[in-house]
Write a protein that binds this DNA or RNA. Structure first.
Length: 490
RNA sequence: CGGGGCGUAGCGCAGUCCGGUUAGCGCACCUGGUUUGGGACCAGGGGGUCGCAGGUUCGAAUCCUGCCGCCCCGACCA
């Protein structure tokens, strides 16, 4: 296995190589689409499992809506169709045939669909068209539904996990009787995402609101969590939208109030995708490969036996099996790698590449001394520990790794968040150390656009905890009431 | 869609400019042996419509024409 390109040398090459070499995913033969390999999918499954539990705990239920959306639905909400029109895959026919002349398989020109179908880029339209039939009175509200699905957005340029033509995600779609209830739902789900990112992915995030230019097509407000990657670029890790009554109006979804009036329903939608995999990778990993937070690692501990003779092998593996069983008994995934066709050094490198948080090695010397060597993936530290203490030691170590990964990532973000008051300084920080920049902005899309054209930096969000502070826009010099977060983004 | 690059064994590549035995190398794979505390070594072996289709030629991976696909850089985006 070739060595990874270092992050310093070429961060984006490092990422691409890591994803492929750690067996997370590969490019498929279909342009812009990826194959998620079993090891990568195991991580996604773990994320899905945890998030699904959090959605259920907040009162949501899962359902499933169609992959195909009639073209006419898309055009009902003006901003929505405008936002997605340029990246929609369209189904126009429903049958193939053999070309009578060449014998080749061709699209049967007779089998043209009367109404073309869009492959969903998101499901608001089909869902609100359905909700119309579900909602008559205030008693039918709220509707709290989530779906796990694939969606297609025909991207020009793609990158494994970060941007692919087809990706996996979840999309929550809720319907409420009041504006406030919907806003509460949207912010609640943002909190769920932030919680998940920080407690499970060990990835600190900034909660905020998108500017008008970055807002979801069809939303009144888009809340987001923004994370900072090791290369100083920001990554939007999740979004939660307050949709107002836009979709209710577009699909004529009204309900009768207690008082007998007729009102449009208030809506939210919220989602996270396999993009979180990219975020996870770029938050913690190093030049040796993947680094995974224990809470999401498919394998927590790997035991690598070291031996010369068959007797030694049997003896060491027996101890290894006991230790693994003990860990499994405590709810951890522990793997004894007794594969005789690979040598220990090869295994060490392999598990480091795959980000297994803790590695235990035991050889003849350890057998004699009653010890094992325990190595931490994140710091690379190794320690000799008495065998009988190994289990408890490892359990504590896993907790510690989870905490310290978060702390390390948080320190990185703090160190790469810069407060800036002039345009010169803004450009300098952006070109130099990168990261988040806290700066004053006059609140207009025109200024945001001009800053983007000049520097490629965008407003990642207006932080929810933004402090009131009189200032002047770094670009236009017009008055501003508080700082927003700028960065170059993925 | 514009600019660049690439397509030769499972993967990574050389060979192409300047046509000429049986198309080569590294990794991986198989067999045997020696090894085994940080990606082992030796020996032997298997594996190819040289992206596709035409053309030029005694002869094409190599030259010509057309097509297809992918990757990278830009505009668009979770």
């Amino acid at each position: 296995m070739a060595k990874l390109t270092s992050r310093e040398q070429d961060y984006s090459k490092w990422y691409n190589e890591l994803v492929v070499q750690a067996d997370l995913a590969q490019h498929s033969d279909v342009k812009g689409c990826m194959v998620i390999k079993p090891y990568g999918f195991a991580i996604w499954e773990r994320m899905r499992e945890v998030l699904d539990g959090m959605f259920k705990a907040t009162g949501h239920q899962n359902a499933y809506f169609p992959l195909f959306i009639p073209k006419s639905y898309m055009s009902r909400e003006a901003a929505h169709v405008e936002g997605f029109a340029k990246e929609c895959a369209v189904v126009t026919h429903y049958r193939l045939m053999n070309d009578p002349e060449t014998g080749e398989i061709i699209v049967d020109p007779e089998a043209k669909l009367e109404e073309e179908l869009i492959v969903r880029p998101t499901s608001e339209t089909i869902i609100w068209n359905t909700y119309k039939g579900w909602i008559q009175s205030y008693r039918d509200l709220p509707i709290l539904v989530n779906q796990w699905a694939n969606v297609v957005r025909w991207e020009m340029r793609t990158r494994l996990f970060l941007r692919t033509a087809e990706f996996l995600w979840q999309e929550g779609h809720t319907a409420h009787a009041t504006r406030n209830e919907a806003i509460e739902e949207a912010t609640q789900m943002l909190d769920v995402y932030a919680d998940f990112a920080e407690k499970w992915m060990a990835m600190p995030v900034v909660k905020g609101v998108k500017s008008e230019a970055e807002r979801f097509a069809g939303a009144e407000d888009t809340y987001c969590i923004e994370a900072l990657m090791q290369d100083g670029k920001a990554l939007q890790a999740g979004t939660s939208h307050f949709l107002g009554q836009n979709f209710a109006r577009a699909f004529d979804v009204q309900f009768q109030t207690k008082e007998g009036g007729l009102e449009y329903v208030w809506a939210t939608s919220w989602g996270v995708s396999t993009r979180l995999m990219g975020a996870l990778i770029m938050t913690h990993s190093d030049d040796k490969g993947l680094v995974l937070p224990p809470k999401l690692a498919p394998i927590h501990v790997v035991f690598v036996p070291i031996y010369k003779t068959d007797d030694q092998r049997a003896a060491v593996c027996e101890k290894g099996a006991e230790l693994c069983d003990a860990l499994i008994g405590q709810g951890y995934e522990a793997k004894l790698d007794d594969d005789d066709t690979k040598r220990s050094g090869w295994k060490f490198a392999e598990y480091e590449l795959k980000g297994v948080p803790v590695r235990v090695a035991m050889g003849p010397r350890d057998l004699e001394n009653g010890t094992v060597e325990i190595a931490r993936r994140d710091t690379g530290e190794k320690e000799l520990v008495p065998l009988e203490e190994a289990k408890d030691y490892i359990v504590k170590m896993l907790e510690l790794i989870q905490e310290e990964l978060y702390t390390k990532a948080l320190n990185h973000r703090v160190a790469h968040t810069t407060r800036v008051d002039t345009w010169e300084e803004f450009k300098e920080v952006l070109e130099g150390k990168g990261g988040f920049i806290e700066a004053h902005w006059d609140g207009t899309s025109e200024t945001e656009e001009k800053i983007k054209d000049a520097t490629k930096a965008t407003i990642r969000c207006i932080p929810l905890d933004q402090k009131e502070e009189e200032g002047r826009c770094i670009f236009s010099g017009n008055p501003s009431r508080g700082r927003v977060l700028f960065a170059k983004a993925y």
